[in-house]
Amino acid sequence: MGELLEHIAIICEADWRIANEATQEEMETFYANVSYKTIKSIENGLMTNFHSLKNNYMKLSDTELLSRTTSYWGVTYTRYEWLLEILAHVYHHRGQLHAMLVHCYNQDPKILMFE
């Protein structure tokens, strides 16, 4: 559970870097140097990384949003499409977290997933 929460907190920054063509080696270094081990650090990391992503995207021009970049594994998207991928990535892991809480720990957080 802690690893999943840590991963969710990192997604916005990690995926921004990937969308900006970070190499596999750069990403491995990034992941090795980020650690959120407490609930507070996870919360702070999530908010910091979200606000950073938001600020980075707000600075992009329409031309930049339509420019295409390629990940180190060869997937190419426009910067707008990368943003949609980041959103899908967060939602995917949010769903995993919800399922783990409900089905593995019998703890329903009473959060509506799709409203």
Rank of each mutant, 00 (worst) to 15 (best):
K40C: 09
N33R: 08
S35N: 06
L5P: 00
N44P: 00
I18L: 02
L66Y: 00
H92G: 08
A22S: 11
D15A: 06
M27P: 00
A9T: 04
L83P: 00
I42Y: 03
N106C: 13
I42A: 08
N44I: 14
N49C: 04
C104N: 09
R68M: 14
G74L: 06
I86F: 03
E3D: 07
M113I: 15
V90R: 07
L60I: 07
A19D: 01
H93W: 05
I86K: 04
G74D: 01
I86S: 02
M27A: 04
L83V: 05
H103P: 00
H103R: 15
T23N: 02
L65K: 11
S67I: 07
I39D: 05
M47E: 11
V90W: 03
S67P: 00
L4Q: 02
N44M: 12
L66D: 06
N20A: 05
I39F: 08
T70R: 08
I18P: 01
S52A: 15
L4P: 01
S35Y: 04
H103T: 14
I111T: 06
S35T: 06
N49S: 06
L84T: 04
L46H: 03
S41N: 07
M27V: 05
Y31L: 15
H92L: 12
E3K: 12
E13H: 10
M47P: 00
R17W: 02
N56L: 09
I86R: 04
E64C: 12
S35Q: 08
H89C: 06
N56T: 07
S71H: 03
S52Q: 13
L66Q: 11
N20R: 09
E21K: 04
L87G: 06
E26P: 02
W16Q: 07
H7Y: 03
H93Q: 07
L84G: 06
L101P: 01
L5I: 05
I8M: 10
T38K: 02
E64D: 12
S41M: 10
V90M: 11
A32H: 02
Y91V: 15
A88D: 03
N20C: 06
L4R: 01
A19K: 01
L65Y: 05
I42H: 03
Y31N: 10
H103Q: 14
E81V: 04
I8F: 03
E6Y: 03
H103E: 11
I11E: 01
Q107K: 14
V90P: 00
V34M: 10
E64P: 01
E6M: 12
L60D: 03
F50R: 09
S52E: 06
G74S: 05
Y105I: 12
T48F: 10
F50M: 09
I10N: 08
T38P: 00
W73Y: 07
C12G: 03
T69L: 04
K37N: 12
L5T: 04
